[in-house]
């Protein structure tokens, strides 16, 4: 018996194409950030997180979380850190950050992308330190270095949130022209 292959609805295909395009962009930024000189242990500007924010606004929490997980897995494959401590730290930071951003976007009334990004950046850095302390170094003195890196996270989180807000507004505006 020959089963007819049904073509998926156009809207579904378009949604998948946008998600894949965002994933490719996020992986590109993940690899680019890995090549940047380090400002501190496990500190990155969080540019790839900007794409998670856009996915959250356009496609919802599930897509944003999946995009973060796939971005870390595929990105680690490209930069050669798959299954190393760097991969574990990155996955923990990215996942916790995405979950905090989703929760704040849904639960905090009046919050904008800037606030969501700020909370995500702080959660990312804190989760990385907790992962390193609990899985690898086992030394609470590690947390002495956390406050200055959290201050840097505030700055990068704010900038990324403003950028995401600008991009989201601009694309929405252009799509209605």
């Amino acid at each position: 018996m020959v089963q007819m292959l049904m073509r998926p609805p156009l809207a579904e295909l378009e949604s998948k194409a946008i998600w894949l395009a965002l994933l490719m962009l996020a992986i590109g930024l993940h690899v680019f950030e890995a090549a940047l000189p380090s400002l501190g242990p496990w500190f990155k500007p969080g540019l790839a997180n900007l794409i998670t924010l856009l996915a959250l606004v356009w496609m919802g929490p599930r897509s944003a979380l999946l995009l973060t997980v796939f971005r870390v897995i595929v990105g680690s494959f490209f930069i050669g850190t798959m299954f190393t401590p760097t991969f574990v730290i990155s996955l923990a930071g990215g996942t916790v950050s995405a979950l905090v951003m989703i929760a704040s976007w849904r639960a905090l009334p009046g919050i904008s992308l800037v606030g969501v990004s700020l909370l995500g950046a702080l959660a990312h850095m804190t989760a990385q330190f907790i992962t390193v302390e609990s899985l690898f170094i086992h030394q609470p003195a590690l947390y002495y270095a956390l406050p200055p890196l959290l201050l840097l996270s505030c700055i990068t989180g704010w900038i990324n949130g403003a950028l995401a807000g600008y991009i989201a507004a601009r694309l929405r505006h252009d799509s209605f022209k």
Binding site: L108, G115, L118, P147, C154, W158, G161
Partner: peptide, 21 residues
Amino acid sequence: MDRGLLLLALLTIGLTWIVIQ
């Protein structure tokens, strides 16, 4: 809302940093 969050974060982090130092 966002500025309040930033202020709260900066105050908490700043105070923690001073105590640690």
